[in-house]
């Protein structure tokens, strides 16, 4: 089995650079090269975002300093949705093209997406108490974000419960793709229904309703969350590649130090 896989991945790849990196063996070192730049970007952007958010952005007129939770709340909520869509995308690619790497990508993204969903809910609760007067309410925005968190957990639990990785991938892909309908529901919930949660401060169609330094801080933190997510997902996908391809020659050579990556 490993021989046929290896010969397939070693096929000449002139001109087909995208498919060249679709094999774990060639993607592994590429992911390794991208790791450090991602980490540096994540740390630098976080420091810049925190400095802007706490020392440059002014106090809010109505909410006082409690609004400073926005610098993690909004980036976390955005990432929880973006990561889910990315996960569903890789699952769909995996189902259509039957590529091993795409399923590994979606497995690598799920825990980080779940983490962002949890952070969005947690910071939302701590922000809701001083401003609205409650930690939690069953409003459409909050409930649909909670469902997103459960979808991540369901995806991970299902994958963990099935031993055969191919079947686990297919079962997980079903949740990921079906659950993707929840993402637009979260996004538009504040427009479609009466909710306690306010509307979006930043959208594609309107100019942002935030003072510019506040907005800068939030966008820096959002970019930091992107960089962090890329870094940690690359790290995890490398671990998953080793776990799943442990029978192949390239992983065995890698683990015994016969090749470097």
């Amino acid at each position: 089995m490993s021989d046929s896989q290896l010969s397939a991945t070693r096929a000449p790849s002139a001109g087909v650079s995208l498919f060249h990196y679709a094999s774990p063996q060639t993607f592994f070192p590429l992911a390794g090269k991208l790791l450090w730049p991602s980490w540096i970007a994540a740390v630098a952007l976080t420091l810049a975002g925190l400095y802007t958010g706490f020392f440059i952005a002014p106090t809010d007129a109505t909410q006082g300093d409690s609004y400073r939770i926005i610098f993690i709340h909004v980036p976390a909520a955005w990432m929880s949705m973006v990561v889910y869509l990315a996960m569903a995308f890789w699952c769909a690619v995996g189902l259509v093209f039957n590529t091993r790497l795409s399923f590994m990508m979606s497995s690598a993204l799920a825990p980080t997406g779940a983490l962002w969903a949890f952070v969005a809910l947690w910071t939302g609760a701590l922000w809701g108490k001083p401003t609205w007067g409650t930690y939690w309410a069953w409003d459409a925005r909050m409930t649909s974000e909670l469902i997103l968190f459960f979808l991540y957990c369901g995806y991970m639990a299902l994958q963990a419960a099935i031993d055969d990785p191919r079947r686990a991938d297919r079962a997980g892909a079903l949740i990921a793709i079906v659950g993707a309908v929840n993402v637009p529901i979260i996004y538009f919930s504040v427009k479609w229904w009466n909710t306690l949660h306010q509307g979006a401060s930043v959208s594609l169609t309107q100019s942002p309703s935030m003072a510019s330094t506040m907005l800068t801080g939030m966008l820096l933190m959002a970019l930091a969350a992107w960089a962090y997510t890329i870094a940690v997902a690359l790290m995890r996908v490398r671990a998953i590649m080793i776990e799943r391809e442990r029978q192949t020659d390239w992983v065995r050579q890698l683990a015994t130090g016969e090749t470097k990556a």
Partner: peptide
């Protein structure tokens, strides 16, 4: 039995609000 405040999506410094 319970009163919650609903705020809007505008964030600005007090001077701007004034």
């Amino acid at each position: 039995s319970e009163v919650l405040a609903k705020h809007d999506e505008n964030y600005m410094p007090p001077e701007a609000a004034h």
